[in-house]
Design a protein around this nucleic acid. Sequence first.
DNA 1: TGATCTTGATTTGTACACAACATCTTTAGC
DNA 2: GCTAAAGATGTTGTGTACAAATCAAGATCA
Lengths: 230, 230
Amino acid sequence: MTGEARARFERIYTLLRERICLLDYPPGMRLREEDLAEEFDTSRTPIRRVLARLEDEGYLRSVHGVGTIVTDIDIASLEQVYRLRVELSELIGKLSPAEPDEDAKRAFATMKTRCEELVGTPSQRAFAQLNMDFFHLLMTLTENEPLQEFSERLYYQTTRIWLKRAAGEDGTEETLASEIGFFLREVSDIAAAVACGALESVGQIRRAHVAMSFARLKARAGEEVEAASL
Amino acid sequence: MTGEARARFERIYTLLRERICLLDYPPGMRLREEDLAEEFDTSRTPIRRVLARLEDEGYLRSVHGVGTIVTDIDIASLEQVYRLRVELSELIGKLSPAEPDEDAKRAFATMKTRCEELVGTPSQRAFAQLNMDFFHLLMTLTENEPLQEFSERLYYQTTRIWLKRAAGEDGTEETLASEIGFFLREVSDIAAAVACGALESVGQIRRAHVAMSFARLKARAGEEVEAASL
DNA sequence: TGATCTTGATTTGTACACAACATCTTTAGC
DNA sequence: GCTAAAGATGTTGTGTACAAATCAAGATCA
């Protein structure tokens, strides 16, 4: 696969992954190859190439005669993913850190501004988008490509579930506002560390926040279980 | 993909990856979809599904109108892969370590025996196979599936190149014997650590040996450059 | 002779028809 | 009325013909 075909593949792949991770395609949803083929004005063949990759990466599950279903993950396997994500987070500052230039520093400052605005007008979708943009900005701080690739996998796998629960149906507004608050602190701390070029600190701050974010998730899950057993 | 189709996919995928990593398919070699289809008694379609995954994982590169080529990797990108591999190696003992039972301990002892036998009758292929088997045995020491998956990716990507250079055309016998010696020490140390249930130590020993193995690789590469510039 | 174009062979990429499989609906039998 | 078998419908998996692209060899012309 090369040239034009590759470009189209990347385009569709990125878009579908984003839809899955922003929960436009919620867990359990059934996708139809033919519908996607029509949407992207092609045949099933290139679509299947994309779906195959999304299946290999664990976002989808194709079942013969039934359909292609968006996966969910239980809290147990999520914990494994999170543990590894915590460890990899710290490596951003240790493996081939890329000294940020003035543009990069400005980008982090902009992130902080966007985040402050979000506190005033909370929105689940805007939060999800900002969170994702911030992740990609963070990834520019390392030049280690395998680390980037694996971090991306872990990020997308955890985030979609985290979004579902952190800003899901139950404690919606309260929880969302609280999580945006935590996120603002993370962005502020990291922007400050970037501003003075302390990349190792960036990794440690990120690690701490990823770990805390999972701890809050587990705590809320525990509350729900308690509530359900009453 | 499910059931019988899945099983065949896994079979072909595993086999082709092994061929690539044991250098039966050396870097630069061109594979033909139709030949593979014939070998596995099927059509191009299921073969393409396998090749697509191998391409996504970086082992192959399909070029329209040319063929499907086994990739090589330069020492620069290999260094990035190795750095990350060093870090992940240590995590075996830290993330969901699986307390080894008696069978597992015996398996490590057997590895040591196989390794000692190999010292007497050195063979590049037997060494490669043993190295691979040992890796898979190590992976049983953690229950963290994402860690297993990523470690596997990094292992296969580095090992095939390492094999090529560590026991390649130039310093063949001498280098091979030397590397087998180092490997015996690693297996002995790790078997001892496993025997007393010190999984954290297993991770640290493994980390050290992976790092040293790459250091030797770089040193040899440096010598070659020197020799070539004379 | 040398450079450029043309043609043919080879190989991956795409489209589509059909097979295999799963699920829901209908109907036959009692 | 209920159960189970048969059929209809819908979806992914496979096979195959053809399109698009690359490369090499040979022809053509300066």
